Amino acid sequence: MAKNRKPSPATDTGVQVSIFDIIKEQHMKAPEQVEAGSMNIANRLREDLSRGLKQANNMSRYEVAAKMSELVGVEISKCQLDSWTAESKEAHRFPAEYLPAFCAATGYKQPLRMMAEMIQCYLLESEEALMAELGKIDQTKRELSKKEKAIREFLGQLTR
C-alpha cells in the first residue's frame, strides 16, 4: 500500500467530487506546502492501475494487454501488467508512454487524473471540456459587452 498518502475524496470513497471542489482544495494549498517526496507516485500509480484492471469493462488482463498492444504497436503481456501492478515488484515500473493505451483499453482514467491534479491541472472529458469552453466563450462575451458599453458611453459623451 502507499505510504504517507493523503486520502483523495474522488478515489478513496468512490464518490465523484466536482472539479470546483478539487480546484478549491488545490487553490488553498500554497506551492511551498508540497512535501518532499510527495511527487513519488510509484505506489499510487500501481494502486490506480490495479483498480483500473479490476474495473476494466469485464475484460481479463490478457484482453487488456492485447488491446494495449494493438494500440501502441508493441507487444505487452499479461505478465508485464502483473509486474507493473505488483507491490512486490518495485523495480518494474509502468512506462508512461503506455498510459494513454491503458486508459483507452480499460476505460479507467484515474491514473491520468491523479497525475494532472498533482501539478494543479485537471482532466476534463469530452462533454466537460466542451462545457468549459462554453464557459470561456460566455466570459469573453460578458467582457466584450462591458467594453462595448464603455465605448458607447464614451462616444455619447464626445458627441454632446
Rank of each mutant, 00 (worst) to 15 (best):
A150W: 14
N57G: 05
Q139I: 00
S50R: 10
A150K: 12
D21A: 14
E25T: 12
I23D: 02
Q120H: 06
K6G: 08
A65V: 01
E117S: 12
E143A: 10
I76W: 00
A96R: 09
G14V: 07
N4R: 13
N43G: 12
E117M: 01
N4Q: 08
E133W: 00
S8H: 11
E35T: 14
K136Y: 02
H27Q: 08
W84H: 11
A129Q: 13
Q55P: 06
E47M: 14
L53G: 07
V34H: 06
A129H: 11
L134V: 05
E90C: 09
L130A: 05
Q139D: 12
M118F: 12
R61I: 00
P95I: 02
E125Q: 15
D82W: 11
C79Q: 10
Q110G: 04
V72T: 12
A2R: 15
K146S: 07
D82T: 15
R5S: 09
L124H: 14
E90F: 03
V17P: 08
N40W: 00
P7I: 04
A30L: 09
E97A: 02
V64M: 06
N58L: 03
K67I: 04
G73A: 11
N57T: 04
G135M: 15
E153G: 04
E70H: 01
Q110C: 00
